[in-house]
Design a protein around this nucleic acid. Structure first.
Length: 458
RNA sequence: GUACGCGUAGCUCAGUUGGUUAGAGCUCUGGAUUGUGGUUCCAGCGGUCGCGGGUUCGAGUCCCGUCGUGUACCCCA
């Protein structure tokens, strides 16, 4: 027989029940923490008009956008009427794209529903996004993100809250060796000003210095020169990357260097304001590091930026975010300040799995009610009904087979209790309850069965 | 887009300088045990060696191509 060899597209995955329990464990913690901060849920479509997505993610991001071919008559016209067809404009073939992140859809929503939304608007959103790059460790083409954003406030309290939220979530999930790296795009602008380079080269400088961790100071030097940054500018930039010490010292040093840059100075003030709020929120200072070379890729950030990393295993950042005061303006004509963070759900799950931080759950079913034969079937179903009405997660055997088979099933799924109702039990008005973990079993009255489970700890 | 690695049973893999009929563990099915799983023992099912071509008396093994997959770069969660 001919059959299709089953497979899923590159970089996508199925989540079987066992994996779903792991995901739910993580997501449940994240959701409840989000709600303690007053963030509210939002969902948006998987597909967006291309004009909404385009031009928001920089050149590289544009490249990774999944674009969707027109469908129905518009694409048939292209395919059927002509044997050969030259595409003159991309929008002849394509007018939609798959969601690339959750920030742009949020911005669109805010711009569209101004009358329904009360500012400041704090929302969270947990949905898949798509990127057309090559999968590798911790990278997929379809993956879930969780974003928490505050729209409509330029207060640094909002930024501090975001950072605090990340700290709380990572702690609650069981991470202790993580760092939150903080910087400010305004400081980076200040550095560009200070180095007397054309402002167009600013992006190149940021991309180069962002790699410090990976390629070291000499690597950055080469990278800068490769990107046609002058020797003189490079000499001014590199010493800034070597600033280290406590957060206070770093701020003092950089503010001395950038004293003549208004924007740089403002960036520094914002960071120290955030740090003071973090103190009020009771966040361990050891977890926060100011990294003057942190740039982050997305082009829409305008102010404080931050990401969190774990030392082991090396997998890149777990979360990333920042302030984007101009993005919503692209949909509105007037700017609305906003700041937010993205939690990389997949990476968090991958890391927690690797570090064995997620309890293994094979099933949430508490009890399997077996069926002995045709005569006892009805009673088994009634017992299952009673258990379910009492709120006990109950599975009932669907096939009448040897008890052995039914026990094997319970064992495989790690269902902790099995109820047997055979001819003897039927006659006595009893059931046999077996504890699959200890192996103990006892015969109890049908009335007592439910009480037995209700007294169990969940 | 660039570079490198890997494709052998459902899964994880072994397979010598190219040489008879391609192996193991796990899984699965049946039995030892017709009212009881997880341990043990016995038996069994399961392979176009990714695909196509080439070299050779002979290819799982060597060469070329192709597809899939993984890793690194770029970039990013």
């Amino acid at each position: 027989m001919n059959y299709v060899k089953p497979s899923v597209p590159k970089g996508t995955r199925d989540f079987l029940p066992e994996q779903m329990y792991r995901r739910q464990f993580v997501l449940d913690i994240i959701k409840s923490k989000l709600e303690t901060y007053g963030y509210e849920p939002l969902e948006t479509p998987s597909i967006e008009k291309l004009e909404v997505l385009s031009g928001k993610y920089g050149e590289e991001g544009e490249h990774l956008l999944f674009k969707i071919l027109k469908r129905g008559s518009s694409i048939e016209k292209v395919g059927s009427e002509l044997k050969e067809y030259t595409v003159h404009r991309i929008d002849e073939l394509v007018d939609l794209g798959l969601r690339y992140d959750l920030t742009v859809p949020l911005s669109r929503v805010v711009a569209m529903y101004q009358n329904e939304i009360t500012l400041p608007f704090k929302r969270y959103q947990i949905q898949p996004v798509w990127r057309g790059d090559r999968p590798q460790k911790g990278r997929y083409r379809e993956f879930f993100q969780c974003d928490a954003d505050t729209v409509g406030s330029s207060s640094m309290i909002a930024d501090a809250e975001n950072i605090c939220l990340i700290h709380d979530i990572l702690s609650e999930l069981g991470f202790d060796k993580f760092k939150i790296r903080i910087n400010n795009r305004k400081i980076l602008l200040g550095i560009v000003e200070y180095s007397d380079v054309d402002s167009e080269k600013g992006v190149d400088i940021c991309v180069a210095i962002d790699k410090l961790d990976k390629i070291g100071i000499d690597g950055v030097r080469k990278e800068l020169l490769n990107r046609n940054i002058s020797e003189a500018a490079t000499r001014k930039i590199l010493p800034i990357l070597e600033i280290n010490g406590t957060n206070e010292k770093i701020l003092a040093d950089i503010s001395y260097i950038l004293a003549s840059s208004a924007v740089g100075t403002q960036g520094i003030e914002e960071i120290s304001e955030i740090l003071s709020y973090m103190d009020d929120f009771g966040i361990d200072k050891q977890k926060l590091t100011i990294d003057l070379y942190l740039a982050r890729g997305l082009s829409y950030y305008t102010g404080p930026i931050y990401e969190s990393v774990v030392e082991e295993p090396r997998i890149g950042s777990l979360t990333g975010g920042g302030r984007y005061d101009e993005l919503i303006g692209l949909f509105l004509g007037q700017s609305i300040p906003a700041t937010g963070t993205t939690l990389g759900i997949e990476r968090i799950i991958d890391v927690m799995t690797e570090l064995d931080m997620i309890p293994e759950i094979k099933t949430r079913t508490t009890v399997l009610v077996t069926i002995f034969d045709e005569n006892t079937k009805s009673l088994s179903l009634r017992i299952a009904r009673d258990l379910r009405r009492a709120g006990i997660n109950t599975e009932v055997s669907l096939n009448i087979s040897q008890l052995k088979k039914q026990f094997i099933y319970a064992n495989k799924k790690q269902i902790p209790f099995v109820v047997v109702i055979g001819p003897e039990e039927l006659e006595q008005g009893a059931v046999t309850l077996k504890d699959m973990i200890s192996g103990d079993q006892e015969r109890i009255s049908q009335d007592n069965l439910i009480h037995r489970f209700i007294s169990l700890p969940k």
